[in-house]
Design a binder for these strands. Structure first.
Length: 589
RNA sequence: GGUCCCGUGGUGUAGCGGUUUAACAUGUGGCCCUGUCAAGGCCAAGAUCGCGGGUUCGAAUCCCGUCGGGGCCGCCA
């Protein structure tokens, strides 16, 4: 070993000991005669003191030393002289008086500073290009360590619950449904491809058929879709599956895991309510305008169609006549919002599909806002009392088809959350959303899509609707949500061949196609498949929330940028013609 | 695919039609300094303002295009 101790562990009890340390030069303070520098490793920072009275030689060595040089120090731990302690440092009561310094490796001038906390943070592309330097920063190091603790806790907890960790293949089979696959060409079979798994869904179900009973995996998943702050081309899920369970058994298991984990890994985070609230999908959409509601604050959507049933306001009239609804949210203390701010909100509303945005400000002089002159006094009073608006509040209306109204107001609700700082970042508002529709109508392709995935068990009592109205079939799917993010998604699965076959047919797959793509699943269900279900909590998003980070790139060691590029290694990149030839691939310009 | 925002020394910002030879901080180089901890002091180097075109007597500044980055919508079984 190059060292006897880590930089973070030395305390007064070590005083008098001769130690050897190795690490990076975090800062240096050169007084000409005496020189201090802070040596850093993963475990902390310690002050090294070069005193010419102790060793003239070390002073010469250290003259050239700059930021991020890698040094080995031999020295003696000393309690600092009275008044020289640094209470801001864990090791601030001691210092190491160097007797010998070895330069293990010098460093060029850095493209950005790694020792200045979050001030002057470099452009993200620069950080990603030099990710190995970026990861030296305290914030990144803490995020990566937190991520490790989360995964370690999950492994230990699930192990105690009789789960076993099983690896599944990364090279698997393309699926026609769902996200775009990342394909891997086969050298051995010209024109054929593996696909990287969008999730180990099929494999974990087959492990249940195999009698493994309780499976989990820290699973990498790949989806070739456009990026977001909370979406990467490859991401990590805690994939798990259980046999002989009903929905509530799965929920209880995962809720138990998270309820135990949060205080253990991030004691400062508070879980809003325990047990977690359970919302139906329909309730979530109607009350919060989202299937992943942020429950840290109110501002629920309120249906005021009845209040404006006889309204003279054209916008309201035409919405109700077309079979739509009028709903609103109440923004507290926002009546004095400027015209410009309201215009901005209107733009936001339009981006979610609204044709416009009507507002009513409750002021001392009566109603103000874009809808004020169209609303009768009795309507104003009625809506005020129905939504509980008080003076100073701003009521925002959306009038359109129900789905549009919910989406628009749901979006605006989150804008006000951020604008008015309504949500405490240290609160984790976990909840379950249950009873999802089984299918969604795909208007573009004029066919039914699976709302969750095609292996989800429909509600048994809805089975007769297969022939009549598939849109009214609900499923045993469930989501875990927290603070406006979908944190996990799962379902009770189909374990019967006949039901599974029917689902595929309804999704528009031809019989031969079903056999070709999913024959292995159907066949497996004929050899004694147990009832089973599971879910897959996202690890990146969870760590992002726990670390108070604004996007998941900050909790992934080597993430892609929003264009799905690795800017450090510069991938994807061209390959040698020889490689292409072996893979039987020709590039078409 | 659509839309909005951002590109100024190595890094982070200011400047937003004319005393700007583009300012400040930090970093870099040099000198001074034996108790600092974001050490301090003095000096110096370092940016044709992403790129291309246009408007103008004059463009970092206004307009158009393009490239790069980020957010949102679509997409994400």
């Amino acid at each position: 070993m190059y060292k006897t101790h880590t930089c973070g562990e030395l305390r007064v009890v070590h005083a008098g000991q001769k130690v050897t340390l190795a690490g990076w030069v975090h800062r240096r303070r050169d007084h000409g005669g005496v020189v201090f520098f802070d040596l850093r490793d993963r475990y902390g920072i310690v002050q090294i003191t070069i005193n010419p009275d102790v060793s003239k030689e070390t002073l010469n060595v250290v003259a050239d030393v700059r930021f991020e040089w890698v040094l080995q120090i031999v020295g003696t731990v000393q309690k600092r002289p009275a008044g020289m302690e640094n209470p801001n440092m864990a090791t601030g009561e001691i210092e190491v008086i160097a007797s010998e310094i070895n330069v293990l490796n010098p460093a060029k001038t850095l493209p950005f500073m790694v020792n200045n906390g979050d001030t002057n943070e470099a452009d993200e592309n620069t950080r990603l290009k030099y990710r190995y330097l970026d990861l030296r920063r305290e914030r990144m190091r803490e995020n990566i360590i937190l991520r490790h603790r989360v995964i370690k806790f999950m492994r230990d907890y699930l192990d105690k619950q009789n789960f076993i960790e099983i690896e599944t293949p990364i090279l698997f089979k393309a699926t026609p449904e769902g996200a775009r696959d990342y394909l891997v060409p086969s050298r051995v079979y010209p024109g054929q491809f593996y696909a990287l798994p969008q999730s180990p869904q099929q494999l974990k179900q087959l492990l249940m058929v195999a009698g493994m009973d309780r499976y989990f995996q820290i699973a990498r998943c790949f989806r070739d879709e456009d990026q977001r702050g909370d979406r990467q081309p490859e991401f990590t899920q805690l994939d798990l599956e259980m046999s002989f369970v009903h929905r509530d058994d799965v929920l209880a298991m995962v809720e138990g895991l998270y309820t135990a984990m949060i205080p253990a890994v991030t004691p400062h985070k508070k879980i809003l309510s325990s047990p977690w609230p359970v919302l139906s999908y329909t309730d979530a959409i109607e009350k919060y305008g989202s299937d992943k509601p942020d429950l840290r604050f109110g501002m629920q959507l309120i249906d005021v169609s009845d209040v404006f049933a006889k309204s003279d306001f054209r916008v309201f009239q035409s919405a109700t006549e077309a079979g739509g609804v009028i709903k609103c949210i109440v923004a507290p203390d926002s009546a004095d919002m400027s015209r410009r701010e309201v215009d901005e909100l209107t733009e936001v509303a339009k981006s979610f599909g609204a044709k416009g945005l009507a507002t009513l400000a409750v002021t001392a002089e009566g109603p103000k806002g874009t809808a004020a002159k169209f609303v009768k006094p009795e309507e104003f009073e009625a809506v005020k009392s129905k939504v509980g608006a008080k003076q100073g509040d701003l009521i925002l209306f959306a009038a359109d088809q129900r789905a549009v109204v919910n989406k628009v107001l749901g979006g605006l609700r989150l804008v006000f959350r951020d604008k008015l700082d309504l949500a405490d970042k240290d609160v984790m508002a976990f909840a379950w959303v249950v009873d999802f529709p089984m299918f969604e109508w795909n208007e573009e392709e004029k066919k039914w899509d699976a709302a969750h995935h095609p292996f989800t068990m429909p509600k048994m009592e809805d089975l007769p609707k297969f022939e009549t109205n598939p849109g009214e079939i609900f499923s045993d799917a469930y989501d875990m949500v927290c603070n406006g993010y979908e944190m996990a998604s799962g379902s009770i699965r189909i374990h019967r061949r006949d039901i599974q076959f029917k689902i595929f047919q309804l999704l528009g797959l031809k019989d031969e196609e079903i056999q070709l793509k999913f024959g292995h699943m159907l066949e497996a269900f004929e050899y004694g498949a147990p009832p089973h279900g599971g879910m897959a909590p996202g690890i990146d998003r969870l760590v992002m929330l726990l670390a108070d980070e604004p996007n998941i790139r900050e909790v992934i060691a080597f993430p892609k940028n929003s264009g799905a590029r690795d800017v450090m290694a510069d991938a994807p990149s061209s390959v040698e013609p020889k490689q292409l030839k072996e893979l039987h691939i020709k590039i078409v310009e």
